[in-house]
Amino acid sequence: MKFFSLRLWYLLAAICCAALLGYALYSQHKMFLDPCPLCIFQRVAFMWIGVWALVGALFNPGGKWRWTVTTLMTIGAIVGGAIAWRHVWLQGLPLDQVPECGPGLAYMMDTLPFWNVLKTVLEGDGACAEVQWQFLGLSMPAWTLVWFIGLGLVTIFLTIRQARVEGRT
């Protein structure tokens, strides 16, 4: 019984990533919610997942290539989820423990070596601790964490299922 094809999942995952990125841009440009550096890194993770999902949808890879696409999507979900987890953690800190606000990402990219920028961004700052938006009691980083977990787990589950189905035929 063919319940749900992996190729269709790849397409849906790519569409989800595009929609999430579209909403992030909408919230930035129409709702005037400026993204902090951690938000920007989460967007990059969704771009990564979306690109690999689109590759999977277009080429419908089999065998080791299917596992390569799934692995690359899962890496994006894990990295994005870790960044979102850190972001949610920062938002939950008591006010007296929130780190000072630092320079903007563009300034850091212009003046610091890449690894220093990465370290500084992942540490987070006061701008990352501010909750600007909520839906059903969850902040935007909390929702991105939910999406990263969901995209990663469903991709792994459907890839394993597809491998088992093909192993029986």
Rank of each mutant, 00 (worst) to 15 (best):
residue 32 F to R: 11
residue 34 D to C: 01
residue 35 P to C: 03
residue 36 C to L: 01
residue 36 C to W: 12
residue 36 C to R: 00
residue 36 C to M: 07
residue 38 L to V: 11
residue 38 L to R: 08
residue 39 C to R: 05
residue 40 I to E: 12
residue 40 I to N: 11
residue 41 F to Q: 08
residue 41 F to S: 02
residue 42 Q to C: 06
residue 42 Q to V: 01
residue 43 R to P: 00
residue 45 A to I: 03
residue 46 F to L: 12
residue 46 F to H: 04
residue 47 M to F: 15
residue 48 W to P: 02
residue 50 G to W: 13
residue 50 G to F: 12
residue 50 G to S: 07
residue 54 L to E: 08
residue 55 V to R: 10
residue 55 V to L: 11
residue 58 L to N: 04
residue 58 L to V: 11
residue 60 N to S: 15
residue 62 G to L: 08
residue 64 K to M: 12
residue 65 W to T: 10
residue 65 W to Q: 14
residue 66 R to P: 09
residue 69 V to E: 02
residue 70 T to V: 13
residue 70 T to R: 02
residue 72 L to H: 02
residue 73 M to W: 00
residue 75 I to T: 13
residue 79 V to R: 01
residue 80 G to M: 04
residue 81 G to N: 08
residue 82 A to R: 11
residue 83 I to Q: 09
residue 84 A to L: 11
residue 86 R to F: 04
residue 86 R to P: 01
residue 88 V to L: 15
residue 88 V to F: 13
residue 88 V to C: 03
residue 89 W to E: 12
residue 89 W to C: 01
residue 90 L to M: 06
residue 90 L to E: 07
residue 91 Q to V: 07
residue 91 Q to P: 05
residue 92 G to C: 06
residue 92 G to T: 07
residue 93 L to I: 12
residue 93 L to Y: 00
residue 94 P to F: 05
residue 94 P to G: 05
residue 95 L to W: 01
residue 97 Q to S: 15
residue 98 V to P: 06
residue 98 V to I: 15
residue 99 P to S: 12
residue 100 E to M: 07
residue 100 E to N: 09
residue 102 G to R: 03
residue 103 P to E: 14
residue 104 G to M: 13
residue 106 A to K: 12
residue 106 A to D: 11
residue 108 M to W: 09
residue 108 M to F: 05
residue 108 M to D: 10
residue 109 M to T: 11
residue 110 D to W: 03
residue 110 D to G: 07
residue 112 L to R: 09
residue 113 P to S: 02
residue 113 P to M: 03
residue 114 F to Q: 08
residue 114 F to I: 15
residue 115 W to F: 06
residue 115 W to L: 14
residue 116 N to K: 11
residue 116 N to G: 00
residue 117 V to F: 02
residue 117 V to E: 10
residue 118 L to S: 00
residue 118 L to W: 13
residue 119 K to A: 00
residue 120 T to S: 04
residue 120 T to A: 01
residue 120 T to G: 00
residue 121 V to L: 08
residue 122 L to Y: 02
residue 122 L to K: 06
residue 123 E to R: 12
residue 124 G to V: 08
